[in-house]
């Protein structure tokens, strides 16, 4: 996509850059800074404001545990903890082998099926700690083909 040299396009450009690389690398920020003629500092100040943007390389699979209200009252925190245990990382981290990253999200709009875990684009609904273990095991063994 072609962008105009307009500050208003900063966020869409950052989104495109993250889509391409999975995160905002220092090089990407430098290039955007040149293109839009705004300082890298300024870009970081905007990018760090928004939860969407990552600044380190994520894992191959991104596990997002929903902690929206519906998921919370149906035990979302228990699911979060079981995913942390299973992957042996804390929320916000990436496994050493770069297979999994883990994040929390606030509502993906499937509240009726709470609690919910997203792995990449797939929604897994009505989770229990045991089911979470099972789901993750599938991604662990099948690796890339899922």
């Amino acid at each position: 996509m072609q962008f105009m040299k307009d500050r208003a396009n900063l966020i869409p450009i950052l989104q495109k850059a993250q889509e391409a690389e999975g995160y905002l690398s220092p090089q990407a920020i430098a290039e955007i800074s040149q293109f839009l003629d705004i300082s890298e500092n300024d870009i970081y100040s905007v990018a760090t404001f928004y939860a969407l943007f990552r600044f380190t390389r994520p894992g191959d699979h991104i596990v997002k545990v929903c902690l929206g209200t519906a998921c919370h009252v149906r035990g979302g925190e228990r699911i979060l903890e079981s995913v942390e245990r299973e992957l042996n990382i804390r929320c916000g981290q990436t496994t050493d082998d770069f297979k999994f990253s883990m994040e929390r999200v606030a509502c993906v709009g499937c509240c009726a099926l709470a609690p919910v875990v997203l792995v990449d684009q797939d929604v897994h609904s009505k989770m229990t700690p045991a089911k979470a273990k099972e789901v993750l095991a599938r991604y662990k063994t099948h690796g890339e083909d899922i």
Binding site: D6, R7, A8, N9, L10, I11, L14, Q15, V46, F49, Y50, A51, L52, F53, A106
Partner: peptide
């Protein structure tokens, strides 16, 4: 949007639209 709840507030949304 880019994942900031406060951007649902109208003046914050305007700033966000301005980059």
């Amino acid at each position: 949007g880019a994942g900031a709840f406060v951007c649902g507030e109208e003046t914050a949304m305007i700033r966000s639209l301005e980059g």
